[in-house]
């Protein structure tokens, strides 16, 4: 019987050899998640900055709503996107179901509220500090939002990384809308689930190790940026 150490060794060997299946899955995962993160940032960062840097009726409700959406269950997001993209759904005509595009959409929906809600926290703290100065200087709304985003840039990179971390590790949504099709929509998390059930433990573990490494790198980047921003007194 194989021990955990044997499987672990073979998993490292797969990574060291640059196994083509492994590379393909990791590459697709990064493509899907980086795309979703980029789109989520394009929507969530300005949205969060507008909410964080503006006083309006119902602002508290919007913040509660965004915070609630941070905990969206991935399978529910997957199900909703599936219904939208399925042949009988309103967007079925686009033929996106079981494609990487569908997975990008699902992950974008999943992490945009995270990016937006964290951006609200960062920018509203900053706006509290800047508000009187901006009013005194007569800074307009657009300039204010732009300035908050620019001044919070180092604090917003960890926000984007938090979104990336959430997206790269989720399995439910991409499984439902991607279908886990070999060489088409199979990403790290869905592969781990599948290969484990097939008993192909070294590939599953190799993917798990890569996933862990990515999580470690993301966290290291967050920590480095945070300390860099404190050092530069930009925090």
């Amino acid at each position: 019987m194989e021990t955990f150490a044997d499987i672990l060794l073979r998993a490292f060997a797969l990574i060291a050899q640059g196994d083509p299946v492994l590379r393909g899955v990791v590459g697709l995962s990064l493509y899907v998640t980086l795309s979703a993160t980029a789109i989520a940032c394009a929507i969530g960062l300005p949205l969060g900055a507008v909410v964080g840097g503006t006083q309006f009726a119902g602002r508290g409700g919007v913040i509660i709503f965004l915070n609630a959406l941070m905990g969206l269950p991935p399978v529910v997001v997957g199900l909703v996107v599936y219904l939208l993209l399925s042949a009988s759904g309103p967007l079925g005509v686009l033929g996106l179901l079981y494609t990487p595009a569908a997975m990008i959409i699902a992950q974008t929906i999943l992490i945009t509220p995270i990016v937006a809600a964290l951006t609200v926290q960062v920018t509203s703290d900053m706006h509290r500090e800047y508000r009187e100065q901006f009013r005194s200087m007569g800074v307009g709304r657009l300039a204010r939002i732009g300035a908050l985003m620019w001044d919070a840039r180092l604090a917003l990179v960890p926000v984007a990384l938090a979104g990336f971390g959430r997206a790269v590790a989720e399995v439910g949504a991409v499984m439902i809308v991607g279908g886990n099709i070999n060489h088409v929509t199979r990403v790290m998390t869905t592969s781990i689930a599948l290969e484990t059930s097939k008993g192909n433990l070294e590939l599953a573990l190799a993917l798990g190790i890569v996933l862990l490494l990515i999580a470690l790198l993301v966290n290291a980047a967050v920590m480095t940026l945070r300390s860099a921003s404190v050092r530069a007194a930009y925090a």
């Binding site: 900053m126 500090e129 800047y130 009187e132 100065q133 200087m137 007569g138 800074v139 307009g140 300039a143 300035a147 620019w150 001044d151 919070a152 007194a233 930009y234 925090a235």
Partner: peptide, 22 residues
């Protein structure tokens, strides 16, 4: 203000921002 509000920019960046606003 009593505690001057310094934007998270360089000294020159703070001035450039105010010049742009004006």
């Amino acid at each position: 203000f009593q505690r001057p509000v310094m934007m998270r920019r360089s000294v020159a960046g703070n001035l450039r921002f105010a010049l742009k606003v004006k």
